[in-house]
């Protein structure tokens, strides 16, 4: 239980630093990259909390978060390259 007390501020400070880069980022790619890494590390944080809360339903949200963050990357990359997305 004491390990959680060390881990939670470690991950929260990493989130805040990612948010600072997402806000400060000069180009769009920096902001999207920072939010991408933020959501990957948030998926890890959710998995750690799933153990902390001792329940099995909470882990599935980590997979969904990681996959949808990846898709956010692709949409913006597709728009930057060819100025049109989808249909």
């Amino acid at each position: 239980m004491y390990s959680m007390m060390v881990l939670i501020p470690l991950y929260l400070s990493a989130f805040i630093i990612y948010v600072v880069r997402a806000i400060k980022g000069p180009t769009i790619a920096d902001a999207v990259l920072a939010i991408d890494c933020l959501s990957y590390d948030l998926a890890v944080f959710l998995a750690i909390l799933a153990i902390y809360f001792k329940s099995a339903f909470l882990v599935s949200s980590a997979i969904i978060l990681a996959l949808w963050a990846y898709l956010l990357d692709l949409y913006i990359a597709k728009h930057l390259v060819s100025k049109e997305v989808g249909a």
Partner: peptide, 9 residues
Amino acid sequence: GSHALAYAA
């Protein structure tokens, strides 16, 4: 994901 971003950038 980061490769797609780098190519697009």
